[in-house]
Nucleic acid binder design. Structure first.
Lengths: 342, 342
DNA sequence: CGAGTGACTGTTATCGCTAACACTATGCGC
DNA sequence: GCGCATAGTGTTAGCGATAACAGTCACTCG
């Protein structure tokens, strides 16, 4: 398209050097700002770069330096708000620091798929890897992965052999549960997420231990799969336990907003009023939550911050640091009508 | 960690060759399956590969072959259902074909940011680029981008100098509008998306022209920004136009489900019943839509299919093909209670 | 029995870049 | 005026892989 050198391939350092009348090393120095170059030489080189539309070849550079300028992210292929937002947070931070991001997404989490994903990223010669896989299995999967390249996990496996950043799910659940108890309920029911998600377990544990600490009875857990449909199913079951008198179910904490939406739907269909008859709370604060019927009380997580810290930790490890601390980000309780006055 | 060769660096072809007692070329042939190798030699080589944990160096390979095995995707940094799902669709297709994906996300769409993103991907030596940027500006931005590497767009700019794949927004809007008219409404109001989104314009055009074709009056457009909040604001305005008698507003088509949710919320607060007093429809069929109050009539888009076709088109162009056809994927109308019997 | 044909393996050059070192000026201190 | 640092530039040697060609050997064919 543009006036290339011989043939029609991309211009190389040597081509630029030829046009500028210097050696290729001088061009390299201008491009990278290493070593001193006389201003007028620099100008000539830059003009040649411009004219040829020179673009450094990352493969060649990576080959000789051993650094690719690329970070790998293992992500779960889903539209779930949490994981997707975390990914954005990390992209953000990486981009600001000038790193490229390559993604290896995993359709179903599991030991081998995660190991495969990490493996394929290593082939790409990434300098660091972030695993977004909030599953209990993820941690174990990582255990088997040899890592000459630093790996950190987000929201992931307890006992993972790598540092983990996450929002404090336990604390978020504690806050919601205490909020509900403070409204005068004897106890709070819980629609949990899938058992193989660490976040689900942490939220459940936060809920359970808070009830215990307050001497409240712990009702049986209803387990969903994060989907609105599963929340709806849970709601149909729970609706039967809502008596007109007192002593029945009157407060539910769903492990995410989507399931809370399903609950709301089921309660509405059953003629149960929220917040009139039952108080409902969720977790995540998806953008829609404020516009549910009724607007949903929930827990907000700062994914941008999570992304930032994750990236920070990764670069630190790439620099050689090596602590296995668990880094927690504080969540925030957002109170709305669904737990409002009756 | 494992028993490397000298030092502690990754094993190279030469290291493997040394251990197996062959030349590096033979190892290369075994790895890539090019050229004949005696079975026992192959076995010796594979054993050495295993022992050293050999991993081919993609940078070196890319340098010599000129092929990186990587595709670039320019994505909009947002959690909007459409773009995010499209990204998944593409990842999917690329992964199945053994391509790696590197993402360059753009926080605010615009001529220069998109050009920058494409530029940074080209530096990564990607073999092809997919631009997910459903903005009118995106198409223009691409116009200025020299492309030695093939580029295709998804849901993007009319008049872009590259092939475009997208769901047929116009047709989706037509279907919703006709559905509402068929319910007996004199006309249908529209809460549109932002003017700089091509999808918003197409949906609006589909709605407008369908009304005109049926001889219905075209009410003024209310414009939102895809967010539930903007849908809510629109709903507050529209609520005033809903009379108890007839002759007023009684059907609204929102350009996406999130805004439709905001509408529902506003109507509920104003004591307007859906579907009793007003019929509401959305666009996207987000997973939550079936659980809104009431469940939402909407238009479903097959993003996996979009991803597949996009990838297919890109590889075709990488292979040398070169048609600028517009590829449309058919959407599907999903009817639910929000436009149900009164 | 010599030439030809594959199968199998090795040698060498090369991709585009940076690291390391070598070289030439120039300016400065003594 | 000599040594020495420093600015500015060039030369050479790889990084780890593939491409292209060149052998070697066994076997077939006329």
């Amino acid at each position: 398209m543009s006036a290339g050198p011989a043939g029609d391939r991309q211009a190389s350092l040597t081509d630029v050097a030829g046009l500028a009348g210097v050696s290729h090393m001088t061009v390299s120095r201008v491009i990278n700002g290493t070593g001193p170059v006389r201003p007028e030489t620099r100008a000539r080189v830059l003009a040649a770069v411009e004219e040829l539309g020179y673009r450094p070849n990352t493969a060649a550079r990576a080959l000789v330096t051993g650094r690719s300028g690329t970070l790998g992210v293992v992500a779960l292929e889903s539209n779930l708000y949490g994981p997707a937002s975390t990914l954005h947070g990390i992209e953000n931070a990486a981009r600001e620091a000038g790193y490229a991001i390559t993604i290896s997404s995993v359709s179903r989490p599991g030991r081998s798929s995660i190991a495969d994903a990490v493996e394929s990223l290593r082939r790409q010669a990434v300098e660091g890897i972030v695993v977004i896989a909030p599953h209990v299995t993820a941690g174990r999967a990582l255990a088997g992965v040899p890592s000459a390249v630093p790996v950190v996990a987000v929201g992931g496996g307890e006992g993972a052999p790598v540092p983990v950043i996450s929002v404090d799910q336990y604390d978020g659940a504690r806050r919601v549960t205490e909020h509900l108890l403070a409204l005068g309920h004897r106890t709070v029911w819980h629609v949990a997420g899938p058992e193989d998600w660490l976040e689900a377990l942490e939220r459940e544990r936060g809920w359970r231990e808070t009830l215990e600490r307050h001497g409240a009875e712990v009702p049986p857990v209803i387990r969903g799969d994060w989907s609105p449909a599963s929340g709806y199913a849970a709601g149909r079951t729970l609706a039967k336990k809502v008596p007109t008198g007192n002593g029945g179910l009157d407060a539910v904490f769903a492990a995410n907003d989507q399931m809370a939406l399903g609950l709301l739907r089921a309660f509405t269909e059953a003629g149960i009023g929220v917040p009139a008859d039952v108080h409902v709370a969720g977790f995540d604060d998806v953008p829609e939550a404020a516009y549910f019927t009724p607007p949903l009380t929930t827990v907000r997580q700062d994914f941008i911050e999570v992304g930032r810290r994750t990236f920070g930790l990764l670069t630190e490890r790439m620099g050689g640091g090596d602590q296995h601390a668990r880094h927690l980000v504080e969540p925030e309780l957002i109170v709305r009508e669904s737990t409002g006055p009756r």
